[in-house]
Structures are given as C-alpha cells and as structure tokens.
Design a protein around this nucleic acid. Sequence first.
DNA 1: TATTAAATTAGAATCATTCCTAATTAGATC
DNA 2: GATCTAATTAGGAATGATTCTAATTTAATA
Lengths: 141, 141
Amino acid sequence: MEMKIQPTQPRTTEIHEEINGLRMTRQRQEVYRFLMGERSHPTANDVFIRIKEALPNISLATVYNCLEALVQHNVIRQVNFDREPSRYCSNLDEHGHFHDETTGTIHDVKFKPGITLTDILDLPPHTVIKDIEITLRGQLA
Amino acid sequence: MEMKIQPTQPRTTEIHEEINGLRMTRQRQEVYRFLMGERSHPTANDVFIRIKEALPNISLATVYNCLEALVQHNVIRQVNFDREPSRYCSNLDEHGHFHDETTGTIHDVKFKPGITLTDILDLPPHTVIKDIEITLRGQLA
DNA sequence: TATTAAATTAGAATCATTCCTAATTAGATC
DNA sequence: GATCTAATTAGGAATGATTCTAATTTAATA
C-alpha cells in the first residue's frame, strides 16, 4: 500500500456537516455549541457577547440569523417570558420554564413521569399542535 | 315636607367605584367593559381603536396604562404569544391559549375537569407560583 | 372652595428585533 | 484549479410595541 508523504493540498473551503438539514456554518456551530453548554437560557445579546470571544467579527444580526435558523430546524428552542427579550435553550425534551423572581434565573420544569400535557387539555379531537409553551413565574423553594 | 323645586347643582366631578382596589376611571371602565364583551383577545391597539368611538380623546398611552392597571389588580389577564403584541382577556379562570395558525384566531383552552396544572409539574415542594402561562400553536380541527 | 394626589395626554425615547444591501464564502460544476 | 451560483454574513438603518416624560386635567379630601 502506497503511503502519502506529502499532505494533500489543504482545502480553501471548509466542510460543514448538517444538523436536521441545516448547514452548520462556523457561526451556527459556535452558537449551538455555546447553547449546548449553557443552562442559563441566554438572550441573543448574551450569545453575541460570549461568541465574540471566538469570532470577533460576528455581528448581532448574524447571531439572530443563526438562532432563528437553529430554531426553525428544531435544533434549539426559543423561550419567551412576557415581553422580555427571547431566550434560547438546547434542551429539546418537552418541558416548561420557571422564572424565579428572587434570583432572576430561569429553570427547566419537567412534567411528572407518564404525563403528557395534551392529556390534560380540553381540545377538540384532531387538533394539530405544532408547539406548546408553558411558563411559570414565582419563587423556588 | 319642603320640596326642592330647583335641582341641586350638578357635580362637576364623577364618582368612581373600585374593582379589586382599583379606581375605575371612565377610561378604565371603557377598557374593561370592552374586554368583557370581547372574546377575540385584542391587542392594546385594537382596544385603542375601538374605545376612541366612546372617548375620542383617549391616548394610546392611556390604554396601555389602563391595561397595565387592570392586569396588576387581577381584573384582566395579559396574554403573550412569542414576541407578538400582547393581547388581553377578561376570562380569569385558569386556562391556556391556542393560536390557530389557519385563521389567526386565539381560543381559550380549558383543562380537563378535576385537573390542575400544578398537579402534573415536577416542582420542588413549597414553590410559590405567582403566574402560569400556557400557550399552544397549531390548527384547530 | 382649596389642596393634594392620581390619572390622562401627546409626543419623544427606548430597545429588541427585523430588514436591507453589499460583500464574502461555500459548494457545485466545468 | 477556475468559474458560477446560491447561501451566508456584516453592519447599519428601519421597525414597532411599549415605556417614559412633562404638562394638564381630574378626583378625593381637608
């Protein structure tokens, strides 16, 4: 078997794998990777500030673009509390969000085992549910 | 018994009853009364347009003030869908909201009898819940 | 009736988000 | 590798719901 001594010419272009049909550009990767390691439900601006460390030239518009693309392709979730800036999380399990007024922090809320939210809602049969959002506000014990 | 022939001087000021400790000014009355008879979950601007018929000089800022005051005093509820303009409803029963993508309309969603939302959430004991919001998006059958 | 506090108004300001457009980049094809 | 085309990005301007501010009006009370 012949060995290549010289490395092949390095590509000038990068190869971007897809996630859920979304091409993962460098910017999208960074946004996604950051959210994966974050449990704090950051805002677009939080993401922007953090990602500038790795990509100093990234623009806020791009962060919004990336977040929207990732949301559209069901890679991350967008979370809204009243009219506050949107927050984002990479937890795709069905869950709600609890806004702790004491600390200002947001926590994922699971459902008790074996329960689906739709079980308890009084909806006409054959209703198509595309998305459910459940948010709570109060004080964690 | 002596009869007053002349009517007493008419008051130049109005008397305003309270609801839940909130003084019901003319503007607040109109806002509240409109919402009582509306099932469409109107936005602040919807309210504004409609109320100008009765109070041509009312300002949009006042509508916002009234809505906020009514919400604060638990006379009406504020409903948010993603980042769309807030909507308001006078239904105080615990219920969710279904946004029908086909028609653009919003419908109240009740829980099945005997079920409380908190029953199915996995929250630490002694958690204080001040507010729950549950919103759905999809197509009604 | 006079005083004081609350509510209203109109318009300016805010600010998260979206839009626009030119420049760049990636991927496909030659 | 060169070229073409479409997607992506960056930066700045625009948008629009909401909030703020200052001045005026109104209501409650002394």
